[in-house]
Each structure stands twice: as C-alpha cells, then as structure tokens.
Design a protein around this nucleic acid. Sequence first.
DNA 1: GTGGAGAAGATTTTT
DNA 2: TCTTCTCCAC
Length: 587
Amino acid sequence: MPPSPRPPAHLAGLNPEQLAAVRHRGGPLLVEAGPGTGKTRVLAARAADLLSDGTARAGGMLAVTFTNQAAAEIRGRIAAWTGGTEVRVATFHGWALAFLNEALGAAAPAPVDEADARELCAEAAAEIGLSPAEGRRRWPEVSTGRQHHPPRLPDETLARLAAAYEARLGRDGLTDFDGLILHALRLLGDPGRRAALRRALPILLVDEFQDVSPAQYELVRAMAAPGGEVTVIGDPDQAIYGFRGASPAFMARFRRDFPGTTVVRLRQAYRCPQTFLDAAGAVLGAEAGRLRADRPERPRLEVRAFADPGAEARWIARAVEGAVGGLSHDALDAGTAGGDRLRSLSDVAILYRVNALADPVAAALAASGIPFQRADARSPLDHPSVRAVRRLWEAACGRRVAFHLDRLPGGRAAWEARLPGLRVELHGRSLGGALPRLLEALDLDPRDPALEALARVAARIPPGADPAPALGHPADLVAPDLEAVRLLSLHAAKGLEFPVVFVAGCEAEVLPWPGADPEEEARLFYVGLTRASERLVLCHAGRRRLHGRRLPGRPSPFLDRIPPALREARGPAAPAGRRRPRQRTLF
DNA sequence: GTGGAGAAGATTTTT
DNA sequence: TCTTCTCCAC
C-alpha cells in the first residue's frame, strides 16, 4: 500500500461528520453540535481550513464567541494550526465596539460598565419624574428590552425610562453593552455600509449560536449576505438564556433566513458515557442513542435522597474527599473511596439551580477543610475603592473624562485642577505602572485586599491596552492553578466538563424553577447532566427552605424521566458519622 | 458621610 | 429568612 499523505494537523483525528463541517464550501452552514461532540475543535479547524486553501484571507474572516475566554481559546487553536496566523476572534460586543470605532472614529460612543449604566438609568429616571431608585431597580428590564431590535419595552413607563436613559447615555457620548449591538445595527441599516462590511468580512463563523439574543441575530443577518459564507454552530438543546431573549428557535430561523443552508449534525460524543447521554436525552423527551458515546463504560447515574440540605451537603463533602482520595473513616463510610482512582479537586464540580443552594455545600466543604471556588463570588473589582482607581485611570488616559470626573470621590471640583498634572505624569504607563501613583492620589491603602486583587490583574495588562476586558474577568482574580472543587450554577457550568459532577437540590420547585419555561428548565438540567465524563450524582433533600419559604421537599419531576435502568437509586446515605473538621483555610 | 431603622426583594449572566 | 437598599437624622 502506498503511504497515505499525512493530513494537515487541523484535520487529524476528525470523524466524518466533523470533517464534513470543516471542509464544507459554498454557502451557509449550520452545525448542530451536542455536548462533547467537538464543537470548539470544529469551529477552529474550519477557520484553519478556510485559510489553508485560500478560501479566506486572515483579515477577511471573523469568528464570534460569547466570552473573551472562548475567543482566546479559539484564537490560540487556530494560530497553533496555521503557524501563528492571527485571525479575528471576538465577542459580539467586542466586534461591535471595534466596528463603531472604525466607522465613527472619535464620534464612536464609549462603553460604560453595568454599575455605571445603572446609575445613568437612575439619573434618567429623575429627569422624567421617577425616583432614581425606580430607575436603578428597573434597569434590568430596560436592558432586557434592549436585547431586541428594535427594543421591546412592554409598558409605557418603561418605554419612557428607556428613551430618557438612551438620551442620557447619548448626551455624554456613552453606551452600555446592549447599546453596542444596537448602535452597530443602526449603522448597518445603511445599505452602503452593509455591503462594504460584507465585502471586507466575507467569512463569518458564530459559536454558541443557540445563545444569540434577538438583536445579535439581527446583527448576524446584517453582517452576512443571505447566501454568504456564514457558519453557525450551536446546540438547540442547550439553549438556556431565554431570560435574555435567546431562543433555540433562532437555529431553525437561520435555515429560513439563509436559504440553501447545509446542515451538519455532530452525533459522536467524546465526553459523556452513553448512559449519561441517554439519561439527559430522556429528560428532554429525546430518543435514546441520539448521541453516540465514544467511550465503552456505562456507569449508572447515582440518585441520592437526603433528609435535609445539611445532610446532603455533608455527604457531598465526604464524597468529594473520597473521590480525591481523602482517607478519613468518614470518606470510607460513604463508600466513595474504594475502587475510585484518585482525582484532583479541580476534577470535581458541584452544580445547582440557584446560587443560594451553594451555601450549605460551601459550609460543609469549609468544615471538612476542602478548598473550593464559588463562581458567584462577588468580584473584588466591584469594590468602591477599585472603581475609584479605575475611574481616575480612565480619566488620566483621556477616556470618558467628564463622566468620571463627576463620580470620583470629592467630585469634579476636587480633581479638575489635578488631572492635567496626573495625565502628564502617567502618560505612557501601564495600569500596573500607574497604580502606586493612583492609589496615592486617591489616598487609598494598597493593602486593601480588593486593591491587591486589582494590582494582580493590572500586572498582566500591557501598556496601552484597554484594561476593560481584562478587568471584567473575575476568573483572573483567582490563582489560575487553584486546586479546588468548583461550585457552579447550572448556567455557569455550560461549556465546561468535569470527571465528577454532583448536582445538588434536584427537587420540585427548584428544577424546574416555578414560573420559568419548563422546557428551558429541562434543557438546563440536560446541560448539567452532560458536564460529567465519569461519575454523575444527583442529590435531593427534604425540608429545604428558600427565602424563608418551605419547599415541598419532593424530588424533581425531571428525575422521573430518567429510565430506571440508567440510574442507581441509593436511599438515604450512610448515617452521618462523626465529622472531623480540619483547619485549612481557603482564600 | 455615617449609621440605624424599616422596607423591599431575593433565578439564571456575558459583555 | 436574610441580605441589600433607601431614607433621613445627625
């Protein structure tokens, strides 16, 4: 047999479905990619492939993701496959901001963060005779309305507030995150501009397409010609952001709006065992075997009942200890240590529907001396002292000067005279380099933990770079190699994968959440079940109280949808033994 | 600007 | 039930 030529690195190891998605040419492509089917791999490989045969120029292609982290990952993969080619990979918001800057230059609106946006909404409320408190309280509704294009503002007061808010932003040349998308759409309403953009960026790839908001969907439509080279990848079964306007229906609508769309479905799943896939599918009412597991093991899901949330939390803590090879008698009692291979703490995730459910779990982990990291921990970057430093820094860089001056401690009067001197002094410095001087000017104590966190983040930002994106990442505040169990909401777990997953609080009136769309709740549970690659434990407890209200304490109706053959119901866990608190502090 | 009393509001979240 | 916000007196 003649030696077959080795495939290029970006094609190596792809299955036929993945290969079809990567190699497709000519017209719109929709890739339906279930959990663990190699979605990110395919997106990056397709970008590399389009470059490798000259279909795309690096500058004529854009890949859009939802988070900066995902963008960085995809950028890195493409660069690795293409000998360092720099491809534009951006979030919708990041791209929109760059587009506005390019199109409007100095007239482009400057983005403010959520806290400032809320304050401006309070000011806008006051201008139309509402209380500032009402403006602040209703800002989330305004923001939700602005996920639509044109904004959808169901009541008259809200419409007035939104109009005043937009005017307030516009007066200072500002915009909020939602406004970035809306401004870009407004510009692209001009046919000449739209055509020019389509010429400049003939190739568009969109990740996590099931999560696009209505306005973002319109943006995709404006950016891509109907028969153009547009690729969207997503999983309608994992659409869990309905509360901000996303809907699995956009995947179906894409096929109508982009006639001639080729559809590729990735069915080979590399993360989960077949049992987990089938159980998760059953929750959605899908037939078994819809996704094919690559791995041979067929572990059953464990379903465990507890008397109360405290017992649930303590058992989880001991089970975690067991999974990572804790040798306490209690861990052995819980029947979790034997036979399991030892794992690292970061292989374990504990998931739940609402953050409040994490409290007993966090307490139990702390009592056992098990390090953990909570995704909902408040970012130190929201601290008033950090905000003041960032304001002064922005003003010293000449960004949004008037806006920040009014909001610095002491107000405009205290800073107007000092600012020119600071600007000269700090010119050309990075935030890290400028930090000591900023703290001095603001008379802040550098030993403040929030400011120490800022210093750590700032040290990683190169001079001249806009610090905003890096500062927005609470993940940056934690030591990256932190060896800790992850505590995550089901939403926050999307896109992640762990060998061992516990889902706490699988109970009625938690899952599904009352008043929420039950189908979306089922998809949320589906997301949770498909995070696990080796062991999956579903816990429920009686006597749960939430916001002082008693919940029924029954298991979630979703558990009934899982075929008994796939699950291993264990009654109340082994009697709680003596706990042995060890002193080992976390942060 | 601080602190205490009382009210309100308490899913999910990225940019 | 508990935390956070708001308002007003100091």
